[in-house]
């Protein structure tokens, strides 16, 4: 499995997203650029210019028509993927840390930072997935997080709930229509911030990564912890691989401590765990800084990791990956075949 190294960014990576077909990769970094890449050969399709600050987040709509990005310049922008044109800019009082489209691409949520007297919020915007359409200026909904600010958030199946991960390690479920808090549950260790939240393909469950060195698989409708993956390093990201029942975790020693130790001690590896059995299966090394984001190809053919070192590494799985099954899984497959 020889990775493709995407060396287009000059600063630390913040987020990476595959489109639904798994043929395009969008990456954002602190260097104020959004890059689009072909997944199969790592060729750069283009960049999107306009943001005036570090870009924290990006998402692509299900039809691969537009992308949304959130930045430290306090804006969320919509872009036409094909032309690179900025379609819309929404302004906010503080930086935007996370954006996500809902399952049909009609709604967009944004997580805003708590700063300068402004509380952290989750905003919902109506979006028309059409490059020529006029976008709505108004926010449909604003959820204020007065307890502990939200660090990450996402849409559940049927756009029923908005799930948010908080700085204090708890996870909240909000009603996506009214914005009411349904419940808030302490999931990770107290005051270990949740750093990532990524969905299973059907958005009925999700995985959270936290600074408490664990990742957890949680149901969307009752926030029940299904699985816990224990690692030996603070985690920045976690993703669920489609097709195979694995999860990939990424993290490493905090960026500020990195210079104090050698690379081998920094734990800058992507770690594969079995989704159901919670065992660690393997590690992929290569980065020389902590992994800030891991993203799985929705077609299940590979994954990409973005690191503090400024590189994206795109991996295509090889045969061994597909062949690897636990004995009990093989047993089950045989049963199903019969």
């Amino acid at each position: 499995m020889r990775p493709i190294l995407l060396a287009g960014h000059e600063r630390a990576l913040a987020q990476i997203k595959y489109n639904v077909d798994g043929d395009l990769i969008f990456s954002v970094s602190k260097d104020q650029q959004i890059c689009a890449w072909f997944a199969h050969n790592g060729e750069r399709l283009g960049t999107y210019h306009g943001h005036q600050g570090a870009i924290w987040t990006v998402d692509v709509d299900p039809t691969s028509t537009i992308i949304a990005s959130g930045s430290a310049d306090n804006t969320i922008r919509l872009w036409d993927i094909k032309s690179g044109k900025c379609l819309k800019t929404w302004e906010f009082p503080t930086a935007v840390k996370r954006v996500e489209f809902n399952e049909d691409g009609t709604k967009l949520l944004g997580v805003t930072e708590k700063r300068m007297g402004h509380l952290g919020t989750i905003v919902v915007l109506d979006v028309v997935v059409d490059v020529n359409a006029e976008q709505n200026d108004e926010k449909v909904l604003t959820i204020v997080c007065d307890e502990s600010k939200a660090t990450v958030a996402g849409w559940s199946y049927l756009s029923k709930y908005i799930i948010a991960g908080h700085e204090d390690g708890s996870v909240s479920q909000y009603d996506a229509k009214t914005g009411d808090l349904n419940f808030n549950i302490a999931i990770h260790e107290l005051d270990c911030a949740i750093t990532d939240l990524q969905w299973a393909p059907d958005r009925t469950y999700f995985i959270t990564a936290s600074k408490d060195k664990t990742a957890k698989l949680i149901t969307a409708d009752d926030l029940r912890v299904l699985k816990t993956y224990v690692s030996d390093t603070p985690l920045n990201s976690a993703t669920i691989t489609p097709k195979k029942d694995f999860v990939v975790l990424g993290g490493g020693q905090a960026a500020m401590d990195v210079t104090r130790t050698s690379a081998r001690q920094g734990k800058f590896e992507a770690r594969f765990y079995h989704k159901i059995f919670e065992d660690e299966i393997g590690r992929v090394r290569g980065h020389f800084g902590p992994l800030n984001y891991v993203a799985a190809d929705p077609t299940g053919k590979g994954y990409a990791s973005g690191s503090e070192d400024g590189y994206v590494r795109v991996h295509q799985f090889d045969k061994g990956y597909y062949d690897f099954v636990y004995e009990v899984e093989r047993e089950r497959q045989r049963e199903l075949a019969v």
Partner: peptide, 17 residues
């Protein structure tokens, strides 16, 4: 234990789906 976990998981998936 694994067999149990796998059964549990598949059961949950079926119900949720």
């Amino acid at each position: 234990e694994r067999r149990r976990l796998l059964d549990e998981w598949l059961q949950w998936r079926r119900e949720t789906e």
